[in-house]
Design a protein around this nucleic acid. Structure first.
Lengths: 244, 244
DNA sequence: AGTTGTGAACTGATTCACAGCC
DNA sequence: GGCTGTGAATCAGTTCACAACT
């Protein structure tokens, strides 16, 4: 498991202690990975999990054609994080999937809360597939007392007043924010205050968060507008509504 | 695709004399616009619609700071499509919003269908804000006979067998695809067959569509994985889960 | 003063092409 | 034969800096 090349976290040995800058920054530090590359890693993993060959191998060419990319792109993306493939053979299916999960950080489960039990909040709570992907929805909160106490996906909706204690006791790291736009800002502040480290934001606003908190936003209107633009272009094909 | 450029903004009032052929191809053709630029146009519009100053003006600096960008970025993005601003003044609020809607293609309403009346399908059907943004949800379909006939957001769920006729009679241009992944491929084919020109795909698969059909995908798992990666990075801040 | 629009410079990302390996 | 990993070259996107304008 502790395989030779990967170890993205903190090369602990101090052989680069000296000022020889040339060697040091050849190893790509995690914050130098191209953003588009990280987006594609999710697609590679999705593809691997979709076609469960078990323990066969897969080539960069195969992955590339399945996703509408070039094989060089796939190899370059993966090579940022180590050497996973074998020349002449390809990448071992399950091994690559595991590596991608490690890289993305989904190789361990994370307690996740949904805030906002409206239509969208209920939908993401019940989405299902998430548990197997490392995101365990363990709590649902809502601002509205009329909704608090109802059951969504087997969970009782709790009031915001219990957020802080729940985050602590359940060790919640991630929140999916599905409240109206005019409440999102305030709720996000409460989430950060309570200790949440990552927010998936469905509200059509930009959330200002302090350092150390990550935000990814998904805006249905934005996605539809991008679609409308592409339609006007007459351009076809699929591109991931990429998360940054 | 008969028309390539043909001045999409068509600023009708000013600017009479410039039929110079040499000038014509300095105007960037729509398929040469950077993809990131198009994503940001949606954010500019969202910001303008959010802060309804009515008919004041807004500067590139203001937009930039609101969205975490540079002012030069904003100006460059907008300048791809024409000259909307006035030096020393900025951009007129409502005029810029209208221009963005024209560019994105949301200046006219489009009949939209939701396919899949599960949790997610019902949520997007009831999302609400869409009608005012140019996307009118006029039909809901489902594969499951047990769901057909129920009411979602004031609409009666119809069977897939009625898709083709409904697309024609209601002039449906866009479909939001919220069916399980293993059905998405087949349903997408039916949509294209029926004449839908754009698909917003929520299923975790890549849809193969013919030329002339646009697809934008939104994958909840992908978005969460991007969040997990950012959390590992310790990188903060908001970036739009951008639609391509 | 303040602001836009834009060429030039720069940074970032993709593709090419091939050495090395199975 | 097929395949990966990677430097070099190319392409794409962003930032800089400033002329022109209010």
């Amino acid at each position: 498991m502790s395989e030779s090349t990967s170890d993205p976290s903190a090369s602990p040995d101090a052989d680069d202690a000296n000022a020889n800058a040339g060697e040091a920054d050849r190893l790509p530090r995690r914050d130098r990975i191209p953003r588009p590359t990280v987006r594609r890693l999710s697609l590679y993993l999705r593809e691997l999990e979709g076609s469960m060959d078990g323990n066969g191998t897969v080539s960069s060419r195969q992955l590339a054609t399945a996703l509408g990319l070039t094989d060089a792109q796939v190899r370059k993306d993966l090579a940022y994080f180590g050497q996973f493939g074998q020349p002449g053979i390809g990448y071992r299916h399950e091994e690559l999937a595991n590596a991608l999960r490690r890289i993305l950080g989904t190789d361990r489960p994370r307690a996740t809360a949904v805030v906002g039990a409206g239509n969208l909040g209920r939908a993401v709570t019940c989405y299902g597939r998430l548990d197997g992907k490392g995101f365990n929805v363990v709590e649902v909160f809502d601002l509205d007392d009329a909704v608090v106490g109802t059951t969504v996906g087997g969970l009782v909706v709790r009031p915001m007043s219990e957020l802080a204690i729940a985050v602590e006791t359940s060790d919640i790291e991630i929140a999916m924010l599905a409240v109206p736009g005019d409440a999102a800002d305030d709720v996000a502040r409460q989430l950060v205050e309570a200790g949440v480290r990552g927010i998936l934001n469905f509200a059509p606003v930009r959330l200002p968060v302090p350092d150390g908190v990550a935000v990814v936003s998904v805006d249905l209107t934005v996605a539809l507008e991008q679609l409308a633009y592409k339609m006007a272009l007459g351009i076809e094909g699929d591109e991931q509504h990429a998360a940054d």
